[in-house]
Nucleic acid binder design. Structure first.
Lengths: 274, 274
DNA sequence: GACTGCGTTTCGTCGAGCGCAACAACTCGT
DNA sequence: ACGAGTTGTTGCGCTCGACGAAACGCAGTC
C-alpha cells in the first residue's frame, strides 16, 4: 500500500537520471563529449583545455579537438588567443531560434510588450522545466536599466510568483516529485510544505500569485497562469519590480493587468474555445 | 589531386564567413555534423530525420544517431513520439549561462574604442530609460577638447541621434507611451509628432539616425541600433562632434563606421542576420 | 490490403577520432 | 635572469567507434 508511488516509474525512463555529470555515455561518443563540454562551461563559466579534459575524463588533445570544432561553430570562444574557453555567441543565436519557434513566446511577446508599457515594470514568461522555473522571455519595463536577464535561468519554484503559479497547476503527486528541499532565501521565504500547499490553493482560487521579498529582499512580483487548449497551466507570466516602486495600489493594478494579459495569451493558445 | 591549394589552410580564419551553410568540414567530423543539425533546425525550425540527413548530405541512420545524442542532452526534442525534431530547452539553459556574463557595456567597449580611434570623435552607448535616453558609456575621440561626460545623463529622445534610434525600435503604442511634449532646444529640433514619425520611419529603413544642430547648435551626431538575439533594438551607439568638424564626407564615413560597429556589437549579443 | 512514406534498429566494415608524446609559449619562484 | 612547471597546440600511428546499407515497425493513403 505504501508503495503506491511506484507509478512514477512509468516515466519514459530516460527523462531523468544523469542530468549533470558531463557525458551521458550513450549515443555518438564524440558528440556526447562535445556537448558535455558545453555543459561544463555552462556550469563553470570559463575553463582551460586541461581543466575540461579532466572534467570529462579524456585526454587533453581530445578535449582540444572537440573545443576547436565547437569554436568553428561559434558555440565557444576563447577569451584571448591561447587562453581559456567560454560559451560563445552561437549559443545565443540558437537560443533566439529556439524561442522564435515556440509559439508560446511568439504569441505572448506583443502582449508582454503592452503589459510592460502599461505597468512600467519588467515582464517575464516562464515554464516548468526539470524541477525549476525556466524563464523563456523577458521584456524590460520603461524604467529600463535591464535589471537582470533571467532568460534561460533556472529559478526556485517556491520563492517566486511564477514558480507558485506553475506549481499550482500540478496535482499532489507531481508536486512531491518536483519539490525538493525548500531553501530559504529571505526571512519571508516559505520553507515548509504545509503553508506552501495552502498558498498554492489560494493561488488556484484567486487566479494569481504574489511574491514579495521571498526570493530577494526588495523584490516584488505578481504572476498569472497561461493555459493551453486543454486548460492545463503551461506557463506563467509575471510583472516584477522593486518593492519601493510597488505600493499596494500599484500592486493591485498590476494584478488585474497581468491576469488579463495571461488570459489573452491563453485565448491565443486555444483556451476557452468550445 | 589538387596539390597547390593547400595554402588555403593558412587563412587567418578569424573573420570567416558567418553564414556556415551546414558543416564546416574541419574539426571532429561527427561533432561538426551534429552542430550542423542544430544550425539546420535553427534555420528551418522543425525537421524530420530524413530531411536533416538530406540537408547534411549524410545517411538517414547517421543523422538519426546524431539527433538521438543531441536529444539525450536536451538540445533537441521531438514534437511527438516518432515525430519531427526541433530545438529544445537545453539550448536555453546554455544561453542562460552565457547571458549571465554578457554585459552590453563590456562587449561594446573594445568596439567603441576602435570606432573612436577610426573617427577621431566621441562615441556613446545609450539605452531607453524612463522616457529618455540614458547614456551608459562614452569613449572620447582623439581630438583634444573633451566634450562633457554624458554617462548617467538622461537626454531627450526626439532631439538626439541615439534617441531616434531607440524610438525607431518601438511600435506606435509604445511610442505614444514614451513621448511627452517635444520640447524645442534649437530651431532645428523636431517638435511635431508627424514629422518625427516620418523621421523614425526613415531611420528604420536606412538603419541609422542623424541629428545636426537639433539638441544644441553646432553639435552633430550619427547613431545606429544595437540588437539582441531577437532582433530587438536594445541600445544605440553614436558618434558625435562639433558640426564644423563634420562636413558631409566625414559624416558619410562616420555613418558607415558606426553602422558597422553597431552590427558587430549586435553579433556579440547573439544577433544573426534576417 | 498493398503501397509508400516515415522514424528506428541491427550489423559488419573501415576510416575517423583517439591517446600518446613532443612542441611552443607563458608564468612563476628563487 | 633563468629554468621548472605550467599552459594550449600539433603530428602520428593504432584501434575502436561511427558510418552506410539494408531490414524493421508503424503511420497514413490511394
Amino acid at each position: 500500500m505504501g508503495k503506491a508511488d511506484d507509478t512514477l516509474i512509468d516515466t519514459p525512463a530516460d527523462t531523468l537520471a544523469d542530468d549533470v555529470p558531463a557525458t551521458t555515455g550513450q549515443g555518438v561518443q564524440s558528440v556526447d563529449r562535445a556537448l558535455g563540454i558545453l555543459e561544463v562551461l555552462a556550469r563553470i563559466g570559463e575553463a582551460g583545455v586541461t581543466e575540461i579534459a579532466g572534467e570529462l575524463g579524456v585526454h587533453k588533445s581530445t578535449a582540444f579537438r572537440l573545443v576547436a570544432t565547437l569554436e568553428a561553430h561559434r558555440l565557444v570562444e576563447q577569451t584571448t588567443d591561447r587562453g581559456r574557453y567560454r560559451l560563445g555567441v552561437g549559443i545565443l543565436r540558437l537560443a533566439g531560434a529556439t524561442t522564435a519557434r515556440l509559439d508560446l513566446v511568439q504569441e505572448a511577446r506583443p502582449i508582454c510588450r503592452q503589459l510592460a508599457a502599461d505597468t512600467g515594470e519588467t515582464v517575464n514568461v516562464a515554464v516548468l522545466s526539470e524541477s525549476s522555473a525556466l524563464y523563456l522571455d523577458q521584456v524590460a519595463g520603461s524604467s529600463a536599466l535591464q535589471p537582470h536577464n533571467w532568460v534561460g535561468q533556472h529559478i526556485p519554484l517556491h520563492a517566486t510568483s511564477n514558480g507558485k503559479v506553475l506549481l499550482s497547476g500540478l496535482d499532489d503527486a507531481a508536486l512531491d516529485a518536483v519539490l525538493g528541499k525548500l531553501a530559504p532565501y529571505t526571512p519571508q521565504t516559505i520553507t515548509r510544505r504545509a503553508p506552501l500547499r495552502e498558498e498554492l490553493a489560494r493561488v488556484r482560487t484567486q487566479g494569481y500569485a504574489l511574491a514579495v521579498d521571498e526570493l530577494e529582499v526588495g523584490l516584488a512580483a505578481v504572476a498569472a497562469p497561461i493555459r493551453n487548449a486543454h486548460g492545463d497551466v503551461v506557463a506563467s507570466m509575471s510583472v516584477s519590480g522593486p518593492s519601493f516602486r510597488m505600493p499596494q495600489d500599484r500592486l493591485d493594478a498590476a494584478v488585474a493587468l497581468v491576469v488579463a494579459a495571461a488570459v489573452e495569451v491563453s485565448h491565443r493558445l486555444g483556451w476557452g474555445h468550445r
